[in-house]
Amino acid sequence: MTTATAEWKIRIQKEDFNVNDEIEAMKKVSRNIGGVTTFLGTGREISKGETISKLNFEHYPEMAEKKLEELRQKAIKDFGIIDMSIIHRIGEIDIGENIVLIIAVSEHRGETFKACEWAIAELKRTVPIWKRETTGSGEVWVSPTP
């Protein structure tokens, strides 16, 4: 069974998002929600010993959204959660800024923790998004991290 999606639940966008607004929107999906787990990824300053001044994300338009939607559907089916939203920013991102937000909602907490953890790992593995870091030594496209 597939769950109908609303476009606002899967987004790749340049602009920042408001975590509270996104949580409130997801809480309205069902009156049976008892647990909300969020994963927020942010830009960190040190990577592999180098100081980063800024980050830049690029994606493969359409395929990245398609893969995120597949990921969302699989999370709902496999973990039995009520719903999930995933937002990923692209373009230039400063240190400390938001990069990615995953929200899992369900009746109980257990499955939302598992679904969030699985979703961020799966996103890094299967969604065509690439990160470029600017450091004192120049710009470098990042290799995948576990």
């Binding site: 493969y60 990245a64 990069i99 990615v100 961020i120 969604v127 690439w130 290799s143 995948p144």
Partner: peptide, 11 residues
């Protein structure tokens, strides 16, 4: 056809 280097999205 798209040629895709290893992905590095997320944090």
């Amino acid at each position: 056809v798209a040629l895709l280097p290893p992905f590095s999205g997320g944090l």
